[in-house]
Amino acid sequence: MADFLVQANGLKKYFDNVHAVDGVDLNVRAGEIYGLVGSDGAGKTTAIRLLVGALLPNAGSVNICGYDVFTQTEQARATIGYLSQRFSMYEDLTVLENIRFFAEIRGLSSSEWLPRSMEILEFVGLGKFKDRLAGQLSGGMKQKLGLASALVTRPRLLLLDEPTTGVDPVTRQDFWQLVIKLVSGEDGVSVIISTPYMDEASRCHRVGFMKAGKIIAEDSPSNLRARLNGRVMELRGEPLNTLRHIAHHDPDVEDVAAFGDKLHLRVKENAADRILARLPVEIEAQNARLISLRLIPPALEDVFIALSESNMESEVA
């Protein structure tokens, strides 16, 4: 189908006996932000490296902007901007010199690179710092320089491998505003981003949860959350530890998580009413105090955890 910018089918990559990527299909539209979410070792980075053609798969195919990544590697790569986890820059070159270096190795001519570089530096907010040595940039600015370098060739697809690891929330917010502007602009760049964090996943248009080399669920954040509608409850009261033990022992409660001053309970389907009737009585019987018990909108984290417990898979899928 022509409206997919990225099409990957049946991707597999084995390292000795480890199935790092174990049958992944991925379709990403123009202007879409796709989040690959999972822990270290789930296969996110390997998947991204397969998509850019940096690794050869044991099986499967990747097509980007109409080019086969493994047979038309150069044409495919020309459409990709890639920001790896360990983005390296030359600390003893200035910001502009770094961009120039990336532009020239990607084949931009001298009449092209300068206006394009300045445009990109303005876009990421580094215009004022073009003559500063890269080694003297703050963490957030280095990350923006990385993004600028990946954008200098006007890619149609941007691959970001855990771009905000170790970056504070203010800087992260700025970074995301840039990414969202890129995809919602007229050119409609597509973005594939990997992250272990749910607060980032919730900003993507679609999310694929990766576990052990497979995508175990894929949907928009709101549809994923809807899978657990009516099944997440918030419990407040004192002492929290007593409430935790009471909730753990309730037959309709599948999971109890403490969140600071409250508990989140994942409950069986259609069990919320029974719990609303039963828990307050139980709490009073144990001389604890109930402040509130209510159904709340599920968070992505709740869904991820529910999906990870294998016996739940069929139930919420």
Partner: peptide, 16 residues
């Protein structure tokens, strides 16, 4: 840092 919500939850259960 760097783990999925399942591992994070298990870790925090220990902390609690």
């Amino acid at each position: 840092s760097g783990v999925d919500p399942t591992a994070r939850r298990a870790f925090w259960d220990l902390i609690y």
